[in-house]
Design a protein around this nucleic acid. Structure first.
Lengths: 103, 103
DNA sequence: TCAATTAGTCAGAAAAACATGACCACCTTA
DNA sequence: TAAGGTGGTCATGTTTTTCTGACTAATTGA
């Protein structure tokens, strides 16, 4: 009898990594909001009641590292930084809608 | 400016609950294995290296509570208990395959 | 010049998730 | 009758995640 998953970072279960990057207290909401409009840091901090800088900062970074969000700086004064969906991120939208459809 | 998510159990983001029930150290693997064959407790405990009774028990319960797995007792001696995908659980399989496709 | 905005980082505390070992009941085989 | 399998629960401890408050730096408006 073979044992699965010698370690829990195993990618024999390919959806697991994606599920991990999307899970957490704020990431689903950040992803969802990003499908509507680009995200801005202090704006999110005000909108997401109960959130905090540290967690939002980490969540945005993880979503960006996963290739779902891209970060770009607008040359305004003061500088504004926007996080918006990448191509990969956009590809996920209809799949999420299907998931929501069967809840 | 309206604030979103007065509490973090909010269902204004419907995928969030589902994402939550599928996230965690063992649940993705349990779901995946359940797409192949019904799950049995001690069998999982042996197969999933590094797992433990407490966590598997909790994970199976959460997946069952979410309506993705159903629990039934086989009248064998000794009794065997099987967890298998519900209709809802089966509906999620192709959606997960799409997600995996774009990783 | 002082307060407030922009977007964060850092250290430490609190909360949540996960693991460990003891224990339970039932049944079977030796 | 003792050991080992079935499928768990419970209390406790460890590890990971999340939150809090202090701090940074540049820019704007009063």
């Amino acid at each position: 009898m073979t044992t699965l998953n010698a370690d829990n970072t195993d990618d024999n279960c390919p959806a697991q990594a994606l599920l991990k990057t999307l899970s957490g207290k704020w990431k689903p909401q950040l992803f969802k909001l990003a499908t509507i409009a680009p995200l801005r840091f202090n704006n999110l901090l005000r909108q997401l009641e109960g959130s905090n800088k540290q967690s939002l900062s980490a969540a945005l970074k993880e979503l960006a590292d996963a290739g779902l969000l891209s970060k770009h700086t607008l040359q305004t004064k003061p500088l504004h930084i926007e996080y918006s969906l990448t191509k990969k991120g956009k590809l996920m939208i209809p799949i999420f809608e299907e998931l929501e459809g069967l809840i």
